[in-house]
């Protein structure tokens, strides 16, 4: 009886310990979704390119705080809207700072886009089912230098990192994804013939050839010469015949 009592006490302690252990770990879901994942533009040097990057949080159970940085690409002037800044959040009663470009609250797919959309927000079509995904938008402005070489491809990679709070002062592993932007420098359309082919008669691709005017004139002249020659010959024969 005593032994049984001791075992059950030990067993109870073990169960209570495991409960205590499990309660100290906060089960959190930090989520970051993004679209598009790539963008391209053909622009003249000196132009400012605007890329809109949309973020969503469909599967998290708390706000995801997003910061965006360029991880590769030339050192051109780049600015973000919203800019990278510090916000203050009250986490379980404790005010805690967070550096971010924007924050995306957890949300769900909606069947219809609302008539009024707050600034900084938008809705994008869900790619695999009916409905629209609420997104927060980040604008990336990329200034192409005026002296950028023409017809060159310039590639950028931007990383978006999402941080979530669990308890005051604790930040859990960040989630991240990236977008690739390709910019090709170009100029106004123009077309100019480089080689002048005057004096060269083109007779290609057939009896008269691809060049209608030249071929036609050439053959016309030759035909005319032959005909005149024949006429003159026939006239001579006629005169001779009547010479008796």
């Amino acid at each position: 009886m005593k032994k049984r009592c001791k075992s059950s006490i030990i067993f109870s302690i073990l169960i209570l310990s495991s409960l205590f252990l499990s309660l100290t770990f906060i089960d959190a879901a930090c989520s970051l979704g993004a679209t598009p994942l790539g963008a391209g533009a053909k622009v003249k040097p000196g132009t400012e390119v605007l890329v809109v990057w949309n973020f969503y949080n469909l599967y998290g159970d708390r706000t995801t705080h997003i910061s965006v940085t360029k991880t590769s690409g030339p050192d051109w002037d780049i600015r973000y809207e919203p800019t990278f800044h510090e916000e203050q959040y009250e986490i379980s009663g404790v005010v805690t700072p967070m550096n971010e470009n924007l924050a995306v609250e957890n949300s769900s797919v909606v069947l219809e886009i609302p008539s009024t959309i707050p600034e900084g927000m938008d809705y994008v079509k869900h790619p695999s089912k009916d409905g629209y995904i609420p997104v927060k938008t980040l604008k990336i402005y990329i200034k192409v230098p005026a002296n950028a070489k023409l017809w060159e491809n310039f590639g950028f990679t931007f990383q978006a990192k999402g941080d979530c709070f669990t308890e005051p002062g604790a930040v859990i592993p960040a989630v991240a994804t990236e977008m690739k932007v390709n910019i090709t420098t170009t100029t106004e359309f123009s077309e100019k013939k480089v080689s002048d082919k005057k004096g060269i008669i083109e007779l290609t691709g057939g009896i008269i050839g691809a060049n209608l005017t030249t071929g036609l004139i050439a053959f016309g002249i030759i035909a005319l010469i032959i005909i005149v020659f024949l006429i003159l010959k026939m006239k001579k024969k006629g005169k001779t015949n009547f010479s008796y």
Partner: peptide, 30 residues
């Protein structure tokens, strides 16, 4: 014979945007 019937060409193109999300659960590696 010199006629060079050229066929007008037009290129149709479409871009399908990429969507990707990552969710971490059971975080705070301890």
């Amino acid at each position: 014979l010199a006629a060079d019937p050229r066929q007008a060409e037009a290129v149709a193109s479409v871009t399908v945007p990429g969507y990707r999300s990552l969710t971490l659960t059971n975080e705070a590696i301890s």
